[in-house]
Computed example of a mutant assay.
Amino acid sequence: MSQRKKHRKYIINGIVVLIVIAISVYVSIYSLHLGRVEYTDNAQVKRLIVPVHCRVKGYVREICFDEYQPVSKGDTLAIIEDMEYRLEVAQAEANFQQVRADKSAVYTSLQTARNNISVSDASVEEVRVKMENAVTEYNRYHALFAKGAVTREQYEAIKTNRDVAQAHYDMLVHQKRSVVLVKDEHGHQVSQSEALLELSEAHLEMAKLNLSYTVIKAPCDGVTGRKNVQTGQFMQAGDILVDLVDKHDIWVTAYYKESQITRINDGQTVDVKVDACPGVVFKGKVKSISDATGASFSLIPQDNSTGNFVKVQQRIPVRIEFIEENNPVDMQRLRAGMNVECLVNY
């Protein structure tokens, strides 16, 4: 009986030893990473998450997507009620046409003023010739009157003709100056009209741009996230309509201990194991290493100035990008935020 108990005890002890050995082997395989590798399980899959903002305010008239739906760049996601913006475009268009008509009228007035100057030049020249003739005639009659060859009445008539010609000439010269001033004024009005035309055209383009913003489109290829808006909801400019997960850019951010980072360099190959893809080893390479620890990017960085210092080993973010050798079907299974294990080969 005692021999049987002993035998059973040996069997039980042997089974316990085998279990301990199996557990030790399992722990050694999955916890100890021997060889020239640096391991971490503090890593996640990353993708660009692009927020889609509403660029103009208004009520949502139509929503054209569902949650977690694949979309392409340029696809319509939502439509804002656009009646107000259509009226603004019509008003800006009418104002633009009015300013353009005013510019044409001012330009016509400028052309008329230039023509008037040409006419004034011809009139001044004609009167100047007549005035010079009158002055010559006056000088001749003045000499004859001094010799008594003509009567006073003849002399006074010639003098009057000279004075009239001089006055007429002076009047036309002043009129020409007035026409020149009018032409200069119209020239300034043309410049002002051109500036107003550019301003009204800019207002028209802005109104058309705001109208186009009432149709909210996808900025990139990707998959929609949670829907943060409902039909009839009022949106302010800058409100987020939905988040898009960009399907093109994908990488891994691994946080290695500062004691490990000395053996990690750009370009080293990396084996990536994803919890959601058992049995699949993805291949990647080290793209870049952060110049700051992960804690340095926190909203409240660690401050040791008080003297109560406890040394905590910091972690450095390392960007790991997948290479083209990976199976595209397996790559499509990756989602942003998935936990991964990374082994950097050095």
Rank of each mutant, 00 (worst) to 15 (best):
K6F: 12
Y10C: 00
I12K: 12
N13M: 14
V20N: 09
I21K: 09
A22E: 06
V27D: 07
S31T: 10
L32V: 15
R36I: 13
N42F: 12
Q44K: 15
K46I: 11
C54N: 05
I63M: 05
F65R: 01
L77T: 02
L77E: 04
I79N: 02
I79H: 06
I80Y: 04
E84A: 00
E84F: 06
Q91D: 10
Q91V: 05
F96G: 01
Q97G: 06
A101F: 10
D102I: 05
D102R: 06
T108K: 12
S109F: 08
T112M: 12
A113N: 07
N115E: 15
I117T: 08
V119K: 13
S120E: 06
S123C: 06
V124L: 12
E125R: 14
E125K: 14
E126D: 12
E126Y: 11
V127D: 03
V127M: 04
V129E: 10
K130E: 03
M131N: 04
R140T: 11
A143M: 05
K147V: 02
T151Y: 09
T151E: 13
R152Y: 12
Y155I: 08
E156L: 14
I158A: 09
N161D: 13
Y169M: 00
Y169A: 01
Y169N: 01
Y169L: 03
D170G: 01
V173T: 07
S178G: 06
L181I: 10
H186N: 09
Q189A: 11
Q189G: 00
S191M: 07
S193K: 02
E194F: 09
E194I: 12
L196Q: 15
L199Q: 14
S200C: 07
N210H: 08
T214P: 03
I216W: 01
K217V: 04
P219Q: 03
C220D: 02
G225H: 00
N228H: 07
Q230E: 05
T231S: 05
G232L: 08
Q233G: 09
M235P: 04
M235H: 02
D239C: 04
V245E: 08
K247H: 13
H248T: 11
D249W: 08
I250Q: 07
W251N: 02
V252T: 08
Y256F: 15
E258L: 15
Q260M: 05
I261S: 04
T262S: 14
N265D: 03
T269I: 09
T269D: 09
P278Y: 11
F282G: 03
F282Y: 10
I289N: 02
S290G: 08
S290L: 07
A292H: 15
T293D: 02
A295G: 06
S298G: 00
P301S: 13
N308K: 14
F309P: 00
V312R: 13
I316A: 08
V318C: 06
R319E: 11
R319M: 10
I320Y: 00
I323M: 08
E325Y: 07
D330H: 13
M331E: 07
Q332R: 04
M338I: 11
E341F: 04
C342K: 04
C342N: 06
Y346L: 14
Y346N: 12
Y346S: 08
